[in-house]
Design a protein around this nucleic acid. Structure first.
Length: 228
DNA sequence: CCCTGATTCGC
DNA sequence: GCGAATCAGG
């Protein structure tokens, strides 16, 4: 299998959308997980939460074992990147509740927490409301009962935003599964500085929780792996 | 063990 | 450029 423009585009989208290399490989077919990762890196796509990268400590006693001939030095700083934006120094002024256009995606409105429960609220740089620990359960995007059409983010874009319609100004949040006929992207105006619109920023970036209290749920931009 | 992504290196 | 092999953390 060769890396056609199409396949590269799909890879890029899924990678940026948060799909794992395995899922992408499965989706593309004909390639291994490693191939996907390798390609992604060659495309300059890296910088994603890696289990290994996170805990990097110091040098390794015996980093290599294969070629054995490896210049141990010359490893300045291949990468030092903080990918995830953290709290902005000043909370954005935008009141979350006043936000217009909340798509009807969730049939369940955010439950009002009881007042005695500490509600963790924080705002991202663009003014989007970060999810708190309590908010995290409900808002997870619904699993894809296939024919259910994802809520349109806005009536403005009656036409689906396809891969070719993507640019720096539209939300790249994927809707549906790549490869399916109605797979498209959100297409809403982005939250400046982010690849997603304000609403999806709220999905993509969550308030950092203490390690212990952290919950597993991944972004699931595609509603989970496809069932075959 | 399983998973993950990162890296290396022969092709 | 490609990707298997390998590494390393969760």
């Amino acid at each position: 299998m060769s890396w056609t423009e199409d396949r590269i585009a799909t890879l890029t989208k899924m990678w940026e959308g948060g799909s794992t290399a395995s899922e992408i490989a499965t989706e593309l077919g004909g390639v291994s997980r490693n191939a996907v990762i390798g390609k992604a890196h060659r495309l300059g796509l890296k910088a994603r939460p890696s289990p290994v990268k996170a805990g990097e400590k110091k040098n390794k006693a015996a980093p290599k074992k294969k070629a054995a001939v490896k210049a141990p030095a010359a490893k300045s700083a291949p990468k030092k990147k903080a990918a995830t934006p953290v709290a902005a120094p000043k909370p954005a002024p935008a009141p979350a509740e006043a936000r217009p256009a909340a798509p009807q995606a969730n049939s369940q409105p955010l439950p009002n927490k009881q007042d005695d429960l500490p509600k963790i609220v924080s705002y991202g740089p663009g003014g989007f409301l970060r999810q708190g620990p309590g908010d995290q359960q409900a808002p997870i995007p619904p699993a894809p009962p296939r024919r259910l059409v994802p809520a349109k983010p806005s009536p403005d874009i009656a036409d689906k935003t396809s891969l070719l319609d993507l640019n720096d100004r539209v939300c790249r949040w994927p809707m549906g599964h790549p490869g399916e006929p109605d797979f498209h992207f959100c297409g809403e105006k982005v939250n400046p500085g982010f690849p997603y619109c304000v609403e999806h920023c709220g999905r993509a970036y969550q308030a950092q929780l203490p390690r212990g209290a952290r919950r597993p749920p991944p972004p699931l931009p595609f509603g989970g792996p496809r069932v075959r």
